[in-house]
Amino acid sequence: MHQPVDSSFRSSVSRSWASAGSDGGRRRVLIVAAILVAAAVAAWLVFGGGAETPAENPEAGRPSITVIVPGTTQVADSVRAVGSIAARRDMPVGVQGEGGAVTAVLVDAGDYAQKGQVLARIDRSVLEQQVSQLQASVIRARADAALAQSELDRAQSLVARGFISKADIERRTATRDGANAAVNVAAAQLREAQARLGRLDIRAPEAGLILERNVEPGQVVSSGSPAVFRMAQNGAMEMRALVAEQDLAGIEVGQSATVQLIGSATEYAGRVWMVEPVINPQTRQGLVRIALSGDRSLRPGGFASGRIEVGTADRPLLPESAVMGDAESSYVYVVAEDGTVERRDVKVGTVSSAGVAISGGLSGKEQVVMSAGAFLNPGEKVSPVLHKPQK
Rank of each mutant, 00 (worst) to 15 (best):
Q255K: 14
P281H: 04
E252W: 11
S256T: 08
L261A: 05
G250K: 10
G254S: 03
T283S: 12
Q285E: 12
M274G: 11
R289Q: 11
L298E: 00
L248R: 07
V272Q: 04
Q282G: 04
N280T: 11
A269P: 13
I251K: 09
P281K: 13
R271G: 02
E252C: 05
D295Q: 11
V275Y: 14
I290G: 01
G301L: 11
I251C: 09
A257I: 01
T266W: 04
R299L: 14
Q282P: 03
E267L: 03
R289Y: 08
A291L: 13
R296Y: 08
Y268C: 00
L298M: 09
V288R: 00
W273Q: 15
E276A: 14
V253S: 09
D247F: 02
R296K: 14
S264T: 01
Q255F: 00
S297Q: 07
V275I: 10
V272Y: 00
Y268A: 00
S256I: 01
G250W: 06
G286D: 05
G294C: 13
T283R: 03
A269L: 09
Q255V: 02
A244G: 10
V272A: 07
S297G: 02
R271I: 10
V259A: 01
Q285Y: 03
I251R: 06
A291R: 14
I262Q: 07
T266A: 04
P277L: 02
G302E: 11
G294H: 12
G286T: 07
E267R: 13
E245G: 12
V278H: 15
Q255R: 14
G302M: 15
A249R: 13
G301K: 13
A244Y: 06
N280R: 12
P281L: 06
V288K: 02
G294M: 11
G286Q: 08
F303E: 04
V275D: 09
V272T: 07
W273V: 13
S256K: 09
Q246G: 05
A291K: 12
R271D: 04
P300S: 09
E245C: 12
I290Q: 01
Q255T: 04
L287P: 04
G263W: 07
D295C: 01
A291F: 04
V259W: 06
L298T: 03
R296C: 09
Q255W: 04
Q260L: 01
S293T: 15
V278S: 15
A244Q: 05
E252N: 12
R271A: 08
G301V: 12
V253K: 09
P277T: 09
S293C: 09
V278T: 15
L292D: 01
Q246V: 08
V288I: 09
V259S: 01
L261Y: 05
P277D: 04
R289T: 05
T266C: 02
Q282N: 07
T283K: 06
V288N: 03
V253C: 06
G270I: 02
A244F: 07
G270W: 01
T283H: 00
S293I: 12
R296S: 12
L261C: 02
L292T: 04
E276Q: 14
A257G: 07
F303L: 15
E245N: 13
W273I: 15
G263I: 11
S293W: 14
A244H: 04
G301R: 12
Y268F: 14
T258G: 03
E267P: 03
V272H: 02
V272W: 00
